[in-house]
Each structure stands twice: as structure tokens, then as C-alpha cells.
């Protein structure tokens, strides 16, 4: 169980007395004695219950697009091109990280044993997708971007199947 930090501190008590002489020592003594040390979380994942693999898909599309643009830059070595290449690379990594995070949210917050019961291999799909996010960060590979996107399409299909919906197409922004 998660523990809250203990608030009992002589320094704090003395400090409180110095700053607020009339009332504070009692307040601190009271709160020190009564304060719970455990946390009960009236928890909300927020935005509550709203999940959609689309957010991972958009990030993955950005990754793929950046990889394509970096390739299109060729191997020119002038300062302007180097600058552009650096920017594209930074965006590619940032979006790959974002895709990984969005996938993790789906896997840990939306999916649960009941929802994966009919899809026993889904963990592997997610695991592949996460690995592909990393590969897209470390490598410059259009193919890795395409693979990530198609893995997210698989997740899209399972996701909407668990909601009993067959009316949500997988579409691309480009």
C-alpha cells in the first residue's frame, strides 16, 4: 500500500510556531497525530473511459511521414539541410515516443483479462508495436514506420471488436 510521508518534524513545528505564534502549533500537532499515512484513491484515468487507438495511429503516421521526408532529403550536407534533417529526426523520435505512450495507455488502462479473453495473442501485438516504436526512434526506416502502422491497425480491429462495433474503419490522415 502506498504510504504518505510522515509529517512529524520538530523543525516544522518550531518553524510554524515562529511564523504563526497564536494558532499554528495546535494545528500542526493535531494534523500530525490525525493525519492518515495511507492513500485511498477515488481514481479516474481521465478522460474517463474514452479510449481510441486513433491517437496512436496519428502519432505513427507522423513517424512514417518524418521517415519519408528524411529519406527524401537525401545526403546533402549543407547547414540548411542538416538543420532540417535534425528537426525531422527530433519530431520522428517524439512522435514514436508518443505512439508508445498511447499504446501503453490502451494496453494498461483499457484492456483487461475479460477484454483480452478472445484475443490471447494481443499482448504480443502490443509488445511488437512497442518494440516498433523504439525501432522507429533508433533507426531511419520507412519500412519500420509502415510496420508500426499496420500493427496499430491490428490493435484497432481488436479494440473495436471488444466494443462490439464493426462500423469504425481504419483510415489514414494522408
Amino acid at each position: 500500500m502506498r504510504r504518505l510521508p510522515r509529517r512529524l518534524s520538530v523543525r516544522k513545528l518550531l518553524g510554524a510556531r515562529a511564523v504563526r505564534p497564536r494558532r499554528e502549533p495546535h494545528v500542526h500537532l493535531l494534523s500530525t497525530l490525525l493525519r492518515p499515512r495511507r492513500l485511498a484513491e477515488a481514481h479516474c484515468d481521465g478522460p474517463c473511459g474514452i479510449y481510441d487507438p486513433a491517437s496512436a495511429r496519428i502519432a505513427a503516421e507522423a513517424v512514417l511521414s518524418m521517415a519519408q521526408k528524411i529519406v527524401a532529403l537525401g545526403d546533402a550536407d549543407d547547414p540548411a539541410t542538416n538543420n532540417t534533417r535534425s528537426r525531422f529526426t527530433a519530431i520522428k523520435e517524439e512522435q514514436a515516443e508518443l505512439a508508445k505512450r498511447e499504446l501503453n495507455i490502451l494496453w494498461t488502462d483499457y484492456f483487461n483479462p475479460e477484454r483480452t479473453a478472445n484475443h490471447p495473442d494481443l499482448w504480443q501485438t502490443f509488445w511488437n508495436a512497442a518494440k516498433l516504436c523504439s525501432r522507429n526512434k533508433t533507426e531511419l526506416s520507412v519500412e519500420a514506420g509502415e510496420e508500426l502502422l499496420s500493427t496499430i491497425e491490428e490493435i484497432h480491429n481488436v479494440f473495436w471488436a471488444t466494443k462490439g462495433r464493426d462500423d469504425v474503419p481504419f483510415y489514414l490522415a494522408v
Binding site: 495511507r38 485511498a40 479516474c44
Partner: peptide, 23 residues
Amino acid sequence: FTRYEIAGESMLPTLRPGDWVIV
């Protein structure tokens, strides 16, 4: 009996974040 501090808003209006309760 154990004391707990409430965090989060999912039990509003019954329990507010920061409330101290006995479990």
C-alpha cells in the same frame, strides 16, 4: 481500523479529495 486520505474526485460529492477517513 486504519486512517486513509482521499485523493481524486471520483467519489464526489460523498468524499472530497483531502478528506481523512477511517477504514
